[in-house]
Amino acid sequence: MLKRLSFLVLMILFSVNVLAQEETVTFSGTIFEITIETGMNNNVVDLSSYFTSDNAIGYKYKQGKSGIEGLVIEIASDGKVNIEASNAGTRSVIFIGDDDITVAESNEVNVIISGDTQVSVSFSPDVETMELKEGESQTFAVSGDESVEWYVDDVLINHTESSYEFTGEEVKIYNIKAVAGESAKPWLVSVLSEEIVDPVTPLDPVPQGPECGNGIRETGENCGNCAADVKCSSNSRCEGGNCVLVKQTNLILYLGLLVGIIILAVVGVIFVRKKLLAKGGNKSLPTQQTRKPVQPVQKKPVSQPISAQLIPLVNYFKTNLSKYKIMDLKQQAMKQGWTKEQINKVLAWIKKK
């Protein structure tokens, strides 16, 4: 019982392994030899009649035992093959079908060429750019009798045959170039990773307008619509969004008038002040510092003599009566210690004189 169960498990695993390795692209039949002439030969074979797959198939080729020197082979996406030959002879080629899952190869197909030798040089494939997956190969070819030099990333490689099979071993962009005599052909080959990367949709750029107040003069700003960012100089003013230079002659005239007015005002104030001082409006009243006895002044004899004690008071009034009011003089004398009776007596005596 255990043996039967083990055998059944092995059969299931074998079936799963076979299904997992089943080819999705297949080649059936045989492509017979192709007979062409020198020059261009169109639609010499239709590969879609031999390769089948449920997926889209891409077609390529590689050289057979007899080589493909002097041939330029072009395969359209529908599988139709064009071959350009530069000289007569026998060549051989193997066609390849690839649906990105599995790869199938045809039988080796002989190409019989007749006719005169073609002098012109042509390159295959007749494209400028192409994409390969990492580890995938591509054959480049040159027709003609010229010797061929091959360059990879501008470095001359040790290969002089008319065809060169390139393999994209690293994910990068390669620059392949073939030089035959005076003719040259470059190819830009992009080797892509097996990983599928979802494309990123770029965001639409948001239009940016000028921003007033950021301290930067931007397009569309002027002194009229954004004075914070566009400032006129000290000797100019803003008119209609433009800074207009102010004439210096007017500015000097205005300053001169202002200085003249200030000088006239100062002179006027000084003149009025001097005039008021000349009238004596600000004179202060004299004071008697002390009541020291004063030596009697020699006077002319008067009819009624006054006591020597009152002589200083008499001199005080005589000196100041013509300058000050009598009431002010009385108050000042009383502050110095003279009595009201003494003051009245002196004034009466002076009045009689």
Rank of each mutant, 00 (worst) to 15 (best):
F7L: 05
L8M: 14
V16E: 08
V25Q: 02
G29E: 04
E37Q: 07
M40N: 06
M40C: 15
V44I: 00
D46E: 07
S53N: 01
D54V: 15
D54H: 12
N55Q: 03
S66L: 15
E69V: 07
N82S: 01
S92Y: 00
G97W: 08
E105P: 05
E105S: 07
N107Q: 02
V109E: 04
Q118Y: 09
S120L: 10
T129N: 02
T129G: 14
T139E: 03
A141H: 02
V152K: 04
V155M: 05
V155K: 09
I157L: 13
T160L: 12
Y164S: 01
K172G: 14
A178K: 15
G181M: 02
K185P: 08
W187M: 00
V189S: 02
S190N: 06
V191F: 06
V191M: 12
E194K: 13
E194L: 06
I196Y: 13
I196P: 07
V197L: 14
P202S: 05
Q208H: 06
G213I: 02
E221K: 06
N225T: 01
N225H: 04
C232F: 13
N235Y: 15
R237K: 15
G241T: 06
N250W: 10
I252L: 14
L255E: 12
I261L: 01
I263W: 07
L264N: 02
R273I: 08
L276D: 09
S284T: 13
T287K: 03
T290E: 14
P293S: 04
V297Y: 10
K299H: 11
P305H: 13
N320C: 10
K323P: 07
K330F: 08
Q342H: 12
A348D: 09
K351C: 07
K351E: 05
